[in-house]
């Protein structure tokens, strides 16, 4: 089941405690890491925690999650595909 990218953005903002940014200001296809939102390796681990807590998806190896963490859209697609029904 597809999830709303708006909801996902809100959860990312809350989990990573991003300041002065609203879900509307985050582009679905903008890179999350490096440029774009400018997240780093600790944020990636915090997103792993978010996926387990909110969506029941367990990522054992951070490398496995890497392609999914490219943008909000790739992450939403990943959650839709992996989410326990």
């Amino acid at each position: 089941m597809q999830i709303s990218t708006h909801e996902l953005k809100s959860k990312i903002i809350e989990s990573l405690k991003l300041q002065d940014i609203t879900p509307e200001q985050i582009d679905d296809d903008a890179p999350l890491f490096g440029t774009g939102l400018g997240l780093d390796s600790i944020d990636a681990l915090e997103l792993v925690v978010l996926l387990e807590k909110e969506y029941g998806i367990v990522i054992k190896d951070i490398e496995e999650g890497r392609p999914a963490f490219r943008s909000v859209r790739t992450l939403a697609d990943f959650i839709a595909a992996k989410r326990p029904q």
């Binding site: 600790i42 681990l45 915090e46 925690v49 996926l51 387990e52 807590k53």
Partner: peptide, 12 residues
């Protein structure tokens, strides 16, 4: 004890 484990950010 939260689901997903303790916060990696906080540990840092």
């Amino acid at each position: 004890d939260r689901v997903g484990g303790p916060s990696p950010t906080l540990f840092a």
